[in-house]
Every structure is written in structure tokens, then in C-alpha cells.
Amino acid sequence: MILEALRAEFEQEVKSTRKLLEAVPEKDINFKPSPVSWTMGELAQHIATIYYWYTGTFTKAVYDLSADRIERGAPSDIQATRELFEKHVELARNALQAATEDSLKEDWTMQAGGRTVLGPMPRGAVARGFLFNHLYHHRGEMIVYLRASGNKVPGLYGPTYEQSQPQKGG
């Protein structure tokens, strides 16, 4: 039951994430709203990377970040980031399809060089917090980046504010 809901949510949100990454313009890839913020390209790459973590979450009891390597393009290459996203969506989908209701109850831990970073906690809670909610948080940031740099924001859950306003005649 829970797994069925997670799979359906995953499929819906992949579409929204794709729309958002497609809205990232190359011309503003180095935009950052403050000196301590990521660039738009770095944020987009992080969003794409979250899909990479599904495999480690659903296939390992202990996921060691320091032992894992992911091939990424440069954060300034939005096409490479979109390709990273598409590649890892498919792998994430496969990992989620292989999961079972019982596997959602099993403890999962994230480590970095032997130091526990997250957990142990049930894999289902990790899926909600570390994967799904983490993604939504950063997508919200990307919407702010797009607006702050004067770009159009795609509607993820219906029309955006701008799309819902009456068109001014010309």
C-alpha cells in the first residue's frame, strides 16, 4: 500500500522535476541569489543527483557516501545535468520497483567514511525525508532562483501565479 503510493508519487514528481530542469536557462547558469548560495547550475545538478541516491537507499542497508562515486558533468553544463537526471531516474525507478513493503521497514544508515550521517532509521522514512522531501525543498529553491533571475517558472501543480493572471492587452 505505502510502496504503491511512493511509486505513484515518484512518477508524478519526475515529470515536475523534468519541467523544472528544462526551465533552467544556460544564460543564467551561474546566477546565485547570495554569496553563500549555490549557482543555478550547482543547484540543478544537486536536484538531479538526488535521483542517484535512490539506488543506494533501496539496495543497501548501509550507504557510504565516501565510497561512492558518481560521474557528473560540469555544473555549468545544463545539458549534462539533464542527462544525469534522465539516467538516474531510470535507475531510481528500477530500485523502487524492486523494493517491497517489508524492505521499507528495514533499518537503513548513511555513513561517510565510517561516521554515521543519517540513521539508522526505517528505509520508508528515509525515502520520504531524504529522497522525496529533500527533492521538494531544492525544487522550491530553484523556483526562487528562476524568478529572481527574471525567468519563467513552469507550473508544477497547476498554473503558476504569472500564468493565472489576466493577460494584459497590447
Rank of each mutant, 00 (worst) to 15 (best):
R93T: 11
Q111L: 07
A95P: 02
L104R: 03
A80W: 07
Q111P: 02
T109D: 11
E101T: 12
T81Q: 04
S103R: 04
F85W: 05
L84V: 03
T109V: 13
Q111D: 03
R82Q: 10
A80G: 04
E101I: 06
A99D: 00
Q111Y: 00
R93A: 08
T100Q: 04
R93P: 02
G113Y: 09
V89M: 05
I78Y: 00
E101Y: 08
I78W: 02
L96A: 09
K87N: 11
Q79G: 12
L104E: 06
Q97A: 13
L104P: 04
G114V: 05
T81V: 15
E90P: 10
L91I: 01
D102L: 10
K105E: 06
L91Q: 01
W108H: 02
A80D: 03
R82N: 09
I78C: 02
D107A: 08
Q79H: 12
E86S: 12
L96P: 01
E101R: 10
E83S: 13
Q79A: 15
M110H: 00
A80K: 05
Q97V: 14
L96I: 03
T109I: 10
D107T: 10
H88N: 15
V89E: 05
E101W: 07
I78G: 03
H88I: 09
K87F: 00
L96N: 01
A99R: 05
K87H: 08
G114K: 13
L84Y: 01
T109G: 11
A98H: 02
T81G: 08
E101C: 07
H88G: 00
H88K: 07
E106A: 14
E86N: 15
K105N: 09
S103P: 03
A92G: 14
L104V: 08
F85S: 09
Q97H: 14
R82P: 00
I78N: 01
A95E: 01
T100V: 05
S103A: 13
L91P: 00
L96R: 01
T100D: 13
A80I: 06
E101F: 11
N94R: 04
G114F: 09
A80C: 07
D102R: 08
H88P: 03
M110S: 04
W108K: 06
D102K: 14
L104K: 11
A112R: 14
L96C: 09
Q111H: 01
A99E: 01
A95F: 01
D107R: 07
K105A: 11
G114I: 11
T109L: 10
L96D: 02
F85V: 15
T109N: 14
D102V: 12
A99I: 09
L96T: 00
R82T: 14
R93Q: 12
T100F: 08
G113V: 08
L104I: 11
E90N: 07
E106R: 11
M110P: 00
S103N: 00
